[in-house]
Design a protein around this nucleic acid. Structure first.
Lengths: 208, 208
DNA sequence: CATCGAATTAACAATGTTGTTAAACAAAAA
DNA sequence: TTTTTGTTTAACAACATTGTTAATTCGATG
């Protein structure tokens, strides 16, 4: 859950947790330091004593969240599996990561779209992590294609489609909740069905 | 482009256009009435004279944008086509709509997520429009499935996947722009390739 | 032209938001 | 106990943001 932020005092911990919740819910510009302080149960002067500025506090949270997001790409791809099974595992791993961190993607996305400095920060951290996984998957993909095991497709298209289908599952939750009125028990079913459906959809699209 | 908002004066027109741009770029809470006024070239008191509150002004824009978004579902489905061609047309129509209105989806999405009143408003307007198209497509889909022409799939999954794959094409633009540095000429190519790729991906996933 | 009403402006008011500061407080070291 | 150091609070300051109001301008109509 919580990432690599070192905590000295108890209040600092409380403020970081409150800031994380507030920033993830509302984004940088809509989050208010006063609201964060209230949420943490401290005076808002405390925030400034510990972090000086809203910007500083945000950077701590944002950096941790970027790390978390990038970490989700560090999957250990087992070379011994069939490509289909590799894809299945990849989709399910990604799906479960989004399920555990439902607000993460739209948070990071919004901040990199609205702030170029954040965008550049993401890209620096992205280079090593993704270059490794990306290249490995691309090699496996192209091997499978040249062996005639799956239909040709660009790795970027495949990854974008997988991410999109998984993410939309959770982005649509506010809508789904309205369409399944009252029966919040079915949400779990909806999510699990989407997971299977996504795997099958992609595998069907890839099969020759 | 511009929707069914009646304009009395020239300044009102300018303010509405400025508000539309500002709200679409920043969302309700980050958009500032002073910025909208400056953008329209009028004093900010003018905004309040014409619209009284930021909320009023926003509602006008938001309602128009919801209408526009819903209108994109009013496709005339030709019953005489093969289901594959119907799907192809549907994907391409949706893709082109998103291309023409790249900020629309994330704008409407953000506002309905963060504000329950907006969510309810959307749902009221959604009932008739979508119920028609949705049911028609579902019927065509189930016919094609029962004839063994395509693999079984839930209509909601199919539509969500199509929407997700199309939308992610444009959501990813800030990232793609960084990865294709300098050569903004290739953006057009990237978009057109995505369009074809999405159609093929979905059709491959559906084919028996 | 005079007048009426709508459009526009400048000034102000109220509240929200970020950030500072001096003083009070607490805990540990001398 | 006194000192010292870091923590916490209350009060304030500066600016932003939304909204109001009274005065002014402008255009049409008598």
């Amino acid at each position: 859950m919580s990432t690599a932020i070192k905590i000295e005092s108890n209040n600092e911990q409380l403020m970081l947790e409150a800031a994380e919740a507030e920033f993830l819910e509302k984004g940088y510009s809509s989050a208010k330091t006063t609201a964060i302080a209230k949420r943490a149960g401290v005076t808002h002067a405390m925030l400034h004593y510990y972090f000086r500025t809203k910007e500083n506090l945000f950077q701590k949270i944002f950096e941790a969240k970027v790390q978390l997001l990038l970490g989700s790409f560090n999957q250990n791809l087992n070379d011994n599996l069939t490509f289909e099974l590799t894809v299945k595992n990849f989709i399910e791993f990604h799906f479960e990561f989004i399920r555990k961190n439902p607000k993460l993607v739209s948070f990071v996305y919004n901040e990199i779209v609205t702030n170029e400095a954040n965008r550049n920060m993401l890209f620096e951290k992205l280079q090593p992590t993704v270059a490794g996984t990306f290249v490995r998957i691309e090699r496996l993909l192209n091997e499978a294609i040249s062996k005639g095991m799956i239909k040709p497709i660009k790795i970027s298209d495949l990854l974008m489609n997988i991410a999109a289908m998984n993410i939309v599952t959770f982005m649509a939750l506010p809508v789904v909740l309205k369409l399944l009125p009252g029966q919040e028990d079915y949400i779990e079913d909806y999510i699990n069905e989407r997971k299977q459906s996504n795997v099958q959809f992609v595998l069907n699209a890839l099969r020759v």
